[in-house]
Design a protein around this nucleic acid. Sequence first.
DNA 1: TCTGGGGTCCTAGGACCC
DNA 2: TCTGGGGTCCTAGGACCC
Length: 400
Amino acid sequence: MDAFFASVELLRYPQLKGLPVVIGGGRRRVDDMIRERYADRPLAQIPPDAFPLLKDYVGRGVITTATYPARQFGVGSAMGMMKAAKLCPQAIVLPVDFDEVRRFSRTFKSVIREIAPLVEDRGIDEVYIDFTDVPGGQREGGRVLARLIQKSIFEATGLTCSIGVAPNKLIAKMASEFEKPNGISVVHEQDVQTRIWPLPVRKINGIGPKSEAKLHRLHLHTIGDIAAQTPEWLVDNFGQSYGRWMHDAAWGRDDRPVVTESEPVSMSRETTFERDLHAVRDRAELGAIFTDLCTRVAGDLRRKGYVGRTIGIKLRYEDFRTATRDVTLEEYTDEAATIRRAAGQCLKRVDLGPRLRLLGVRVGKLARADAIPAQPEAAPAAAEPTPDLFHGLGSASGTG
DNA sequence: TCTGGGGTCCTAGGACCC
DNA sequence: TCTGGGGTCCTAGGACCC
């Protein structure tokens, strides 16, 4: 989907079309505040100059999506709000409306599934579709079917998308970016040398910032540069598995199937604080946040019908270092109190000296709740009073 | 005034078992 | 005096993706 989060907001506020708009950042429900002020008017008639601007933004968020006019200023996804504010202070900022975005996500995916049933979920705004056995799926190299999907999504949602059609997922993903926004690109196997090799290495889905930097150090900049290396050389420099994969990817080889069903591996909740917190000095605040995270993970598990056996925590320190600890329990759980107890034990094994900017709670080793035989009732809670989390951990603060 | 939140997968060492 | 081999599970960290 093209600029998905931003496009969803533009459906609600069409008067912002053509303006630089960024989505992201805040817990501040700025749009609610504006809507209150103009409660007598339809949303589409709130004047654009009533919306909050990036230059007035305060907080530690990042940008989730920028509209194309905003991108012209160099603003993009994952960029810190403060940095973006320097590049485009006049951009309008809106918070993410997850419920609304999820609603549109479900809609566009179901539109696709009605046309082509083999669909692999790749997050909220992206899918892989298997055209192979769809009637007419091969006409004009798949372009006809791609057009039908595009048109159907637009009619159902008013949103545009970009589609890449290719012999495999790897090339299709790259092709989908060729004609953004609202474009279709068909890439055949024999087009790899002319259309894929000139691209920067980072365009391969699976080569991120670290591998890009290493490739640059080795004087490899384009996908063609990688393709020109022997598999042995790539294995020597990147390891058996990643080296081989990189060679195949550069040659456009990918035999991964379109996977239509999968089970979740873990569920987690995490939060970055508005200011860095200290385990001792901000004990009460941290304790409340910690309990809340455990409660929310437990709620997620229950709502989706899963139980888990590995409980973990994640800390991010003020210097952005990350620490994780986890523990695997004898029995599966979806109970907030059990999760909190185990996570509290994990907390005792980590350095709580430096200030923290993020705290997270994760439950892994998931199984469907209905696939796990009922377990004997745990010992009554009275046997072990609920620990005051972050209490007693002050003694560890000296280790910083 | 840097740097969200929710995920998956991989690697590597150690414990433990046969 | 020298020190198997294969396998699984657990834990911590990190790369990467949307």
